[in-house]
Deep mutational scan, measured.
Amino acid sequence: MQIFVKTATGKTITLEVEPSDTIENVKAKIQDKEGIPPDQQRLAFAGKQLEDGRTLSDYNIQKESTLHLALR
């Protein structure tokens, strides 16, 4: 499925993911596309910060959802 990640600079990244993917996997995909190390990424959805060990389906993130990326 496709999801979107909006960066602090307003850029939107499109990612191909599975509901079973962990947040860690998603951060690795962002690193592949943007070169941002996962340990510098903070992802949020619906106002909640997402934890590495959880999956997209844990957070009820569905196709075409938009996550927000902040850098630490």
Score class of each variant (00 low, 15 high):
residue 34 E to M: 12
residue 29 K to P: 00
residue 38 P to L: 15
residue 12 T to I: 15
residue 27 K to W: 02
residue 47 G to R: 04
residue 1 M to N: 04
residue 44 A to Q: 14
residue 26 V to H: 00
residue 5 V to Q: 00
residue 6 K to I: 14
residue 32 D to Y: 08
residue 72 R to D: 11
residue 7 T to M: 13
residue 19 P to D: 08
residue 4 F to A: 04
residue 68 H to T: 08
residue 62 Q to E: 15
residue 45 F to E: 02
residue 31 Q to W: 14
residue 49 Q to H: 15
residue 2 Q to C: 05
residue 70 A to T: 11
residue 16 E to P: 05
residue 24 E to M: 14
residue 70 A to N: 12
residue 53 G to D: 15
residue 53 G to Y: 13
residue 67 L to I: 11
residue 13 I to N: 02
residue 35 G to V: 03
residue 46 A to K: 14
residue 13 I to R: 02
residue 50 L to K: 00
residue 48 K to H: 15
residue 71 L to T: 10
residue 33 K to I: 13
residue 47 G to N: 07
residue 28 A to Q: 10
residue 60 N to E: 02
residue 34 E to A: 08
residue 66 T to H: 15
residue 46 A to V: 06
residue 69 L to E: 01
residue 33 K to D: 04
residue 56 L to T: 02
residue 34 E to N: 08
residue 71 L to G: 08
residue 44 A to L: 10
residue 10 G to Q: 06
residue 62 Q to M: 11
residue 12 T to V: 15
residue 19 P to M: 14
residue 44 A to D: 11
residue 50 L to W: 01
residue 21 D to V: 05
residue 53 G to S: 12
residue 68 H to Y: 08
residue 51 E to P: 03
residue 24 E to C: 05
residue 29 K to L: 13
residue 15 L to E: 01
residue 39 D to S: 15
residue 29 K to T: 05
residue 17 V to M: 06
residue 22 T to V: 14
residue 39 D to F: 15
residue 38 P to C: 04
residue 29 K to D: 04
residue 38 P to T: 15
residue 54 R to Y: 14
residue 34 E to C: 04
residue 34 E to F: 09
residue 15 L to R: 00
residue 62 Q to R: 14
residue 6 K to D: 07
residue 64 E to R: 08
residue 32 D to P: 02
residue 54 R to E: 05
residue 10 G to T: 06
residue 40 Q to I: 14
residue 12 T to R: 11
residue 4 F to D: 03
residue 44 A to P: 00
residue 4 F to E: 04
residue 44 A to Y: 15
residue 40 Q to T: 10
residue 27 K to C: 02
residue 8 A to H: 15
residue 47 G to V: 02
residue 29 K to C: 03
residue 57 S to Q: 13
residue 13 I to A: 02
residue 9 T to C: 05
residue 47 G to L: 04
residue 59 Y to Q: 03
residue 38 P to D: 04
residue 33 K to F: 10
residue 2 Q to P: 14
residue 17 V to R: 00
residue 2 Q to S: 14
residue 65 S to N: 06
residue 65 S to Y: 08
residue 56 L to V: 07
residue 2 Q to T: 09
residue 25 N to H: 13
residue 18 E to L: 13
residue 62 Q to F: 12
residue 68 H to E: 09
residue 1 M to C: 03
residue 30 I to A: 01
residue 58 D to L: 03
residue 57 S to V: 09
residue 58 D to P: 01
residue 64 E to Y: 11
residue 35 G to N: 06
residue 40 Q to A: 14
residue 51 E to I: 09
residue 53 G to Q: 13
residue 9 T to I: 09
residue 55 T to H: 07
residue 67 L to M: 04
residue 59 Y to R: 01
residue 2 Q to I: 13
residue 31 Q to E: 12
residue 64 E to F: 15
residue 27 K to Y: 03
residue 45 F to M: 05
residue 52 D to P: 07
residue 64 E to M: 12
residue 67 L to Q: 01
residue 26 V to R: 00
residue 46 A to D: 11
residue 5 V to L: 05
residue 54 R to D: 06
residue 6 K to C: 06
residue 48 K to R: 14
residue 60 N to S: 11
residue 25 N to C: 04
residue 12 T to A: 05
residue 48 K to F: 11
residue 63 K to L: 07
residue 51 E to D: 12
residue 8 A to N: 11
residue 66 T to G: 02
residue 13 I to H: 04
residue 18 E to H: 10
residue 43 L to Y: 03
residue 33 K to L: 12
residue 37 P to A: 13
residue 57 S to G: 11
residue 31 Q to G: 07
